[in-house]
Design a binder for these strands. Structure first.
Lengths: 153, 153
DNA sequence: CACTATTGTTCAGCACGCTGAACAACGCAA
DNA sequence: TTGCGTTGTTCAGCGTGCTGAACAATAGTG
């Protein structure tokens, strides 16, 4: 008994993390049956308009190059992307969407539209989304090369 | 240049994840200098009213027992909690806050109040918080034992 | 051509989340 | 006591995030 769920007393950052996990989790059923992961989905999303280098994908997804490297590897293993070396600059790995990748991404878009049940618990879904976009835009200047902006000590 | 940051087109779940990472990251400076982690902080938070078993902590933090197990281990390693076996039920590990733990938690609370700069980017901070609380309350029924609610197949 | 710096990617290793499985201790029944 | 199911915790292993370091290839300088 006592205090059952004083979630309201949590720090906002923690609230954000837990909410993210919970929502991610609600996608798991869909994703697992398709053999893809939630991180891979955003990469697919960024790839829909054409081939990109891993660096570009990392920038776009607001993650480090290392993280995107592994995500792409996973995506490739699942057959959703193709990897090739840029003939002009052989350091670069150019990532391209396969048909299956394009297909599964389209399906995910549909599913997102069809099942707003999860986020339906929110009063002002659109307002909430907007706040998130603001937050990410404000805080997520870049990353990718994992720049350490203020090493004063 | 093309499309620089179409964050607004991201799925909401991804937005949530990235926002969480970004906000978490803004705490890193504070946490790192104190030798604690963001996951540990919520455990400390739950411990402030008295000793708890790991199971209770897991419930309270909306994570699985396994995850809490490792978090407590880390906290113990850092000297913020003490662990003991319940004499009544020797299966149980009772976790208690140390003085240092209580101290660092209080400091974190203060810091949270003093530096709302990060979340200050938001228009309606309170409304946003409220949405998060609603979301977590609605979706985060429990976890801990990692119950699989619907294994129909 | 070597020398050095920069750029693109991967490797090593950690934190944090999860699931499945193992293990120890308890509780209940025969 | 033995046996078995339940409960509390940890171990194994994976996915996603990070940092720091290594490595390969390109580019600039002599």
């Amino acid at each position: 008994m006592a205090g059952p769920d004083p979630v309201a007393s949590w720090p906002t950052g923690r609230l954000l993390s837990v909410a993210a996990r919970l929502v991610e989790h609600s996608w798991q059923e869909f994703l697992a049956t398709r053999g893809l992961t939630h991180a891979g989905l955003i990469a697919l999303h960024l790839l829909r308009e054409g081939p990109r280098t891993q660096r570009e994908l990392a920038h776009g997804a607001k993650v480090t190059d290392q993280t995107m490297s592994r995500t792409v590897e996973r995506l490739h293993r699942a057959g959703f992307v193709e990897r090739g070396t840029d003939p002009v600059d052989r350091r670069r790995t150019v990532v391209t969407l396969t048909d299956r990748g394009r297909d599964v991404h389209a399906e995910a878009l549909r599913a997102e539209r069809d099942e707003p049940e999860v986020l339906g618990a929110l009063r002002d879904y659109e307002a909430f989304r907007l706040q998130l976009v603001e937050l990410v835009t404000a805080l997520g200047v870049d990353r990718s090369t994992a720049a350490r902006p203020d090493p004063r000590g």
